[in-house]
Design a protein around this nucleic acid. Sequence first.
DNA 1: ATGGTGGCCCGGCCA
Length: 291
Amino acid sequence: MRIATWNVNSLPARLERVQGWIERAAPDVLLLQETKLSDASAPHAFFEGLGYRFAHHGQGRWNGVAIASRVGLEDVVVRFGEPPAVAVELEGEEQVDPMGEARMIAARCGGVRVASLYVPNGRALDTPHYRGKLAWLARLGRWVEETARPDEPLVLGGDFNVAPSDLDVWDPAQLVGGTHVSEPERAAISRLLDWGLVDLYRLRHPEGERYSWWDYRAGMFHKNYGMRIDFLFGTAPIAARCVGSEIDREARKGKPTPSDHAPVVADLDGPGVAFDAGWGAEGRFEKRRGK
DNA sequence: ATGGTGGCCCGGCCA
């Protein structure tokens, strides 16, 4: 079984790329983030035409998460199972509450509990958005601890907007004092790992210079100045079944315009189906340096 | 060079 996660940065803007990638990578379960769609606009027929069932949790213009599965899709939960939040005032200090936003959907697919997660960006350390990010990550930790067990098949996938170690960023010195690398954010990821989740890509790839997100600006992708912030985290029974994992750098290249994130793939059981993930000869991306 | 790109959808906001 192949599970993948991909922040598509708008599903309607990415439909052609998503269809091409599904045909190329043939995931059994695809976790999507940043669909930027309302539930009423969710493209169920598009996914059904490709052989997938589709569950979407959106709010329109921002955020939005979804699960496409061709191995069953049951027991859908959104927003950690909490009731819809009332409208949140975003102007005042300490009023930022990402809990009400469309950032979490979970389901059971092919005997595996999967969650598609879009962690708040946090903007900057001294903002209420950062404190909201930490609160959201704490809610995620509590949801995992209260509703799952480390010995059952569970996969958390998505855009975590955290680089867990300095090996996951192109230049740690440039990011000091910023979000994505702060100690509290990394502690929130450690909480998940300490509970029993395993970073499936890192399990198969100990090397650095492998990222899942590159800024659109300033040629960051071409210089391979990126961060590894998209993950598939699996419990021990999932890690034991994981025969391979890739970040598909090919999906970040070319036209039509790609997302700024690449898909992360993990294969459970069997040999998997090999594909060139675009990191260059011998699987190593040749870093190019700007003038 | 204190920039740059891209998506929301048309004036800035967000990443």
